[in-house]
Design a protein around this nucleic acid. Structure first.
Lengths: 190, 190
DNA sequence: ATTATTTTAATACAATCGTATTAAATAAAA
DNA sequence: TTTTATTTAATACGATTGTATTAAAATAAT
């Protein structure tokens, strides 16, 4: 008999307001009050959905990983040559347009989990490993390469590129970045 | 006629205490009070050397870049084959041992400057560019490579590796990391 | 229309924050 | 020893913080 409010949607809305606050004022500026203001909600309203600030921040930051993963998986629904598929998936890491805020929050997330010492696993890296394994099992990769090394190499390159683009060091347009990564894929694909 | 206290040394000591606080509690935990406590100084003492919290934080975070640059330049004093020199310099980016804290602070620094929109230049990347140019002028690089692309590629790889090592995703020991980067250098050296 | 339950709003509280002020302590120079 | 500039310590102020409490408002089911 309550006022009908979709719980999950509302939580996501608050989370995305949290992203904006974090991107603007950092984690130290992400007070419950400032987040409520950004979301156009009262302090009590926000607290109704999240019992503590920590719970809110972890939900908001965790949602980034979830959203990125989901977006990457979308590509598998569209039939395309394996190399193009991989390339399209990897391009999802590159912060362009809206995704800039996403990566800013992700950076804060890394720092946050690092000092909480809760950073031993990473679903994205796991996904990268299983993707490479699958490519290998399908005979799409060269036989003379060290799988572990190449996975590390590829992931490092993509994340490093993403970081430098975010920092504004690299001014290449989307297409040249694509070529840069494709060249790396050519090194390991048959 | 004052009590003799080396101003620069004292500021550096406070800065390094700031690093510890940032690595432990993040930028949001880096209050003037907590920094003073970490440095075994009074609140007033810290404020004597830094007029505002912002000034202190920027000094502390900026010192990281300074220190890394200095350490990298040390290698040029020791005569060694060009490729080995470059490799040794690049390895200074990899967070091993004490350098973990350094990179944690650097990450916060990136986020900080990013939201202050003061991140258009980076002395490290500039150094990378000039290093590559110099190698090329000495005829040590292959003629058929795109200099700009290779510089971006190499820097992204090293920083990506550094980030993933910090995150605990990559468990390779120092030697294997060295080999990974060396292999990349072999691709562009004559 | 009444009831039941969720959501919002208002207010309060103790703790901590950055900053400012002022006096005390310190130690080199006179 | 006295003088003097530097450094430290103590304290205070207003603002903001996370959290808690409580009552009001809103609305779907009865």
């Amino acid at each position: 008999m309550p006022k009908i409010v979709n719980h999950e949607e509302r939580k996501a809305l608050i989370a995305k307001s949290t992203w904006n606050v974090i991107a603007r004022d950092g984690l130290e500026g992400a007070s419950v009050r400032s987040i409520a203001k950004e979301a156009n909600l009262s302090l009590g309203a926000v607290r109704h959905y999240f019992n503590t600030q920590e719970e809110l921040l972890e939900f908001a930051m965790g949602l980034v990983e979830e959203q990125v993963t989901e977006r990457i998986m979308e590509h598998t629904k569209q039939p395309q040559p394996p190399k193009q598929l991989v390339l399209n998936m990897l391009m999802e890491f590159i912060p362009i347009g809206n995704r800039t805020i996403e990566m800013q929050v992700w950076l804060e997330y890394i720092s946050y989990k690092l000092r909480k010492k809760e950073l031993r696993e990473d679903s994205v890296h796991q996904g990268m490993l299983s993707m490479m394994t699958q490519l290998n099992e399908n005979g799409l990769l060269r036989k003379d390469i060290n799988m572990e090394e190449e996975t590390i190499h590829l992931h490092a390159l993509v994340d490093g590129l993403a970081l430098h683009i975010l920092m504004g060091l690299v001014k290449l347009d989307e297409n040249r970045i694509r070529l840069l990564i494709e060249r790396e894929l050519d090194r390991i694909f048959t």
